Computed example of a mutant assay.
Amino acid sequence: MRIAVVMDPIDRIKPWKDTSFAFLLSAQARDWECWYIEPDWLFFADGKPQAQTAPITVIDRDRDFYTLGERDVHALTDFDIILQRQDPPIDLDYHYITGLLSLAEQAGVVVGNRPDAVRAANEKLLAQHFPALCPPTLVSRSIDQLKGFVAEQGEIVVKPLDAMGGSSIFKIHEDDENTQVILEVMTRDQTELVMAQRYLPEIRTGDRRVLLIDGEPVDHALLRVPGEKSFRANLAAGGRGEVVPLRDRDREIAATVGPWLAERGYWFVGLDVIGDWLTEINVTSPTCAREISAVTGQDVTGAMLDRLADRTGR
């Protein structure tokens, strides 16, 4: 089996926590040929999608953890499986890349997650296909609407629709004297949509990253607990991670959203759950597999690769 991973520059990752790196380790353990592609190496020429590619060997350690072979041009159809693992934001360039990967998929390559599905998704809005599972939510650029939502809910969080890792998230309470300026900045003076949700005090005990493989939940989640003086639990924002078994509520949420997501080509997914509420559905480059595998011994990324291999029919 030949697999290519489209990912952000590997020299910038933290291998002990990077899920794209975990996919490479799992593929290598299966004796697959592993190839590395950076997003800006993709192009279209001679009637087919192509890329500069480099064979890659990975080693499970914190430093000197990869070796790249000589870079060369390959048609994307030279690969059986392509993983799209580029981080957000999903900007125009990201859209164009999914377009190139769609051409590879059309030619018979298994691309995960499906590029058409990723292109159609906003990870903040995707959860709103299931509003009964989500906390009260407002998506708007109107400062008056957002202020009304604060007054209604008492305390809210506001976040941009295109960020990740807990960046640019603000908590606002009804009597906050900075409400006006925060909303002006977040909406860029009412020119950009933002998401506001009721603040969930359960975040103090952490949010759960629940991974889905082809619509089915992994048996353990990563509980991400905010730092002492923060309400953001994301590991990138200083949160602390702890691997925990799934609760019944986690399984209920997964059973509701999982089949719908898998049917649309979202095969590797990260659900964010705070208390009993679904807050986000991550489909671009879901993380936390390394942490879960390190504690449980389960090859989370390997299980996903096996499902993708089945889809190749080889």
Rank of each mutant, 00 (worst) to 15 (best):
Ala4Cys: 04
Ile13Gly: 10
Ile13Thr: 12
Ile13Val: 15
Lys14Met: 01
Trp16Phe: 04
Phe21Leu: 10
Asp31Ile: 00
Gly47Met: 08
Gly69Asn: 11
Thr77Ser: 15
Asp87Phe: 01
Pro88Met: 08
Tyr94Arg: 01
Leu100Tyr: 13
Leu103Cys: 07
Glu105Ala: 15
Asn113Tyr: 05
Asn113Cys: 01
Ala120Tyr: 05
Ala127Arg: 04
Ala127Phe: 02
Ala127Gly: 15
Gln128Ala: 04
Pro135Asp: 06
Pro136Phe: 00
Phe149Trp: 07
Gln153Cys: 09
Gly154Arg: 02
Ile156Tyr: 06
Ala163Arg: 06
Ser167His: 07
Ile169Gly: 11
Phe170Glu: 12
Glu174Leu: 09
Gln180Arg: 12
Leu183Cys: 08
Arg188Glu: 15
Val194Lys: 07
Leu200Trp: 01
Pro201Gly: 05
Gly206Asp: 09
Leu211Asn: 10
Asp214Cys: 11
Glu216Arg: 15
Pro217Arg: 04
His220Ser: 14
Leu222Cys: 14
Val225Cys: 05
Gly227Lys: 13
Ser230Glu: 15
Leu235Asp: 00
Ala236Arg: 03
Gly239Asp: 02
Gly239Ile: 08
Arg240Glu: 12
Glu242Met: 11
Val244Arg: 10
Arg249Gln: 14
Ala255Trp: 01
Gly258Leu: 10
Gly258Asn: 09
Trp260Phe: 13
Gly265Gln: 03
Tyr266Ser: 11
Leu271Asp: 10
Leu278Val: 05
Ile292Asn: 09
Val300Lys: 08
Met304Ser: 01
Met304Thr: 01
Asp306Lys: 11
